[in-house]
């Protein structure tokens, strides 16, 4: 159902990685779409495939990884079969990415200014002066103090928070329509995190970008997302807008994740917190049935017998479980 507003349309995306022990199905057929100006949060724990999904969209997967999809469209154009050269024109230009660790994505041998100018001139026919002006304009928006000096500095001379701001500036140099942010604030202190998230939100609103925010932090998700997709073991197990998913979490995994967070006022001081027992199943080889059933308190025999149907609720929320959608009563207790 792609409309003119649709920025990204993904159907049946799979990422498979051959390993000595067999094929690792890291992303197992996920669907989502993203509209202009919208924020989609991919949330899940380590190994759920959320980062690989972003890499697959950017065409940045490790060489031996195999990407397949039923449909992979960016602004109505197929990018699945796009040749590498054409993809290079897209990447850093109309779609850009921010990584968790800015130090590994900035070139330590070049000044910030050089890197910003280079990325702009690579995609746009502009002069160095125009590129510098663009960088200073973005610095202003992002809240970089002493912007002119920053251009002359090298990445190692900056604090972690500033480096991440530089990464954001670099990603925005060409005015992308799609911004992928993979755990952009996880490595930062909490006070800096709040600042940066505000910056990201403001920029997104101002430029009307679509944003995919990848994080494991449900607090961040609840405050940044328009739409949420909860990933588990390479699948999206629940999807909906942020109010639906947080107020009426319907997949047991989503519910479990929300319950086991210590939240001021909800849990008795020093009382046991709810937790999800067990570990994530191996993604090597075929997986039949629900991937979460080993850890699920509601699991029945049929959960392991066949693949679970996707339940689509009339208001747009959907999840992959045999249970009925949780009532709002339960949900309000869960989300406090």
């Amino acid at each position: 159902m792609s409309t003119a507003d649709t920025l990204l349309d993904v159907r049946g995306l799979r990422v498979d990685i051959p390993t000595p022990n067999g094929m690792l199905h890291a992303v197992r057929g996920i669907d989502f779409d993203l509209k202009r100006g919208e924020t989609l949060c991919l949330v899940g724990e380590s190994g759920c495939g959320k980062s690989l999904t972003a890499m697959a969209l950017m065409g940045l997967l490790p060489r031996k990884a195999l990407r397949t999809a039923d449909r992979l469209e960016f602004q109505g154009n197929d990018i699945l079969s796009l040749p590498e050269k054409a993809f290079n024109r897209l990447r850093g230009n109309r779609m850009a990415m921010i990584f968790q660790e800015p130090m590994t994505s900035l070139n330590p041998a070049l000044t910030i200014g050089q890197q910003l100018v280079d990325v702009h001139r690579q995609h746009r026919n502009v002069s160095t002066k125009e590129a510098r002006e663009r960088a200073l304009f973005l610095f202003e928006k992002i809240g970089v103090s002493a912007p002119v000096e920053r251009l002359k500095q090298y990445p190692h001379e900056l604090s972690g928070g500033l480096r991440q701001r530089m990464m954001i500036a670099m990603a925005l140099m060409c005015g992308p329509q799609l911004l992928l942010a993979d755990e952009p604030t996880t490595a930062l202190d909490v006070t800096i995190q709040a600042e940066l998230l505000r910056v990201l939100r403001n920029l997104q609103e101002e430029f009307g970008m679509g944003m995919i925010l990848i994080t494991h932090d449900l607090g961040v998700v609840s405050r940044m997302a328009d739409k949420v997709a909860v990933m588990y073991a390479g699948e999206i197990v629940e999807r909906g807008d942020v109010y639906q998913v947080f107020n009426r979490p319907s997949h047991p995994y989503t519910r479990g994740l929300l319950e086991c967070l210590p939240i001021p006022g909800r849990h008795k001081h020093m009382a046991h917190l709810p937790s999800i027992p067990g570990v994530v199943p191996s993604l090597i080889g075929d997986l039949t049935g629900c991937a979460f059933r080993e850890r699920c308190q509601y699991a029945e025999d049929r959960c392991g017998e066949a693949d679970i149907d996707w339940r689509q609720l009339p208001d747009g929320q959907g999840y992959q479980c045999i249970l009925p959608a949780s009532s709002d009563g339960v949900a309000s207790e869960v989300s406090r």
């Binding site: 006070t191 709040a194 940044m224 942020v242 939240i263 989300s335």
Partner: peptide
């Protein structure tokens, strides 16, 4: 203030 408890719509 910087603790971001899950609270949809609360903003940053």
């Amino acid at each position: 203030h910087s603790v971001l408890a899950p609270d949809p719509g609360a903003g940053i």
